[in-house]
Design a protein around this nucleic acid. Structure first.
Lengths: 172, 172
DNA sequence: TCGAACTTTCAAAACTTATTGAAAGTTTTA
DNA sequence: TAAAACTTTCAATAAGTTTTGAAAGTTCGA
């Protein structure tokens, strides 16, 4: 496969993949394009490469910056803004975990606490099933919360090394 | 908060949460409803509780069964089918990881291999950046593949115990 | 301060996905 | 075998999301 074809395929696939994860297709495509660009690109170059409108490029790049996946680059002596993506996938993964945790888990935990405090007679089967389920989810979420925090802090080498030693080895 | 209010809130929140994860709102709501029901529910009961159509219930329950999160329950002497959800959240999480891995990562890995075999001169900066990025993603994906497989196989106790020992302890 | 070069906004349009409900299909009982 | 009791399908439609592009806003250099 030639580079041009491979690039197009990667952009399309990364875009499709992104939609599975609640990221919109264009945002993932811009991310893909920047990941494989040796140099930062301007909004015009992104428009051109992906055949999308200026507004669309602007909105989605803004969101990528918000997610901490893309940075503005100012070239000396130029008015245009350029954009480049973090290329180390471990950093990208950690950044995504960090943001999603902030946007999802951190919001869910207080809601679960509130729900666990439902009033009612514990001998009532409906009440018992409800609180048991909520508490089960809480325990899981608290665990996930701590585990993800540690992962976010860990560096690649430590994380891979330890996890592989763990998973590769004993079974209890 | 009274039970009825808490149930409604949980169903709404779980539904909203689901959409962040590529699961549609109704599917997540049905799942929530079944999670907090002491007994299996019929399609009619789900329709009634969530005010949604029969077709919608049927489609989404079918998908939940497909994901391995819900089971048909036949009550002796009754024509109706009833449905119940797995209530152990660790099993639910493992099941979701297993299905998503099958539907996403397992499809991505061969594509990345193909893309890594792009033709061209490695001294060309565009080619080098492309293959470097793809190989970086491949390494990450292969690692994730193995780690997730192990997690899917692990039981709750082993997983939590080991992971917490690991994350709670040394920093390398 | 002006105007050129650029970025941002946002309402309307296009596209995508989810839902309905009536019709078709299936299973069970008598 | 017939009819009742249920489940499934699917075309039409509704709802939700993304994209466009023109207008408004901003910044910079002279």
């Amino acid at each position: 496969m030639q580079l041009a074809e491979a690039k197009a395929k990667f952009i399309a696939d990364w875009g499709r993949f992104g939609t599975n994860w609640g990221i919109n297709r264009t945002m993932a495509q811009i991310h893909a394009l920047l990941l494989i660009s040796p140099d930062p690109l301007s909004a015009d170059e992104v428009m051109e490469e992906l055949s999308i409108s200026r507004g669309n490029v602007n909105m989605n790049i803004r969101e990528l910056i918000d997610w901490g996946l893309v940075q503005k680059v100012i070239k000396p002596g130029e008015r245009k803004e350029y954009f480049s993506a973090e290329k180390d996938i471990w950093k990208v993964a950690r950044q995504i975990v960090k943001e999603r945790k902030k946007r999802e888990l951190d919001l869910m935990i207080p809601v679960l606490k509130e729900l666990s405090e439902v009033e009612g007679d514990k001998r009532d089967k409906a009440v018992k099933t409800f609180t048991d389920t909520i508490n089960n989810i809480r325990k899981f979420s608290d665990q996930a919360d701590r585990t993800l925090d540690t992962m976010i802090r860990a560096d690649e080498h430590w994380f891979l090394g330890s996890l592989m030693k763990l998973f590769g080895g004993k079974r209890d």
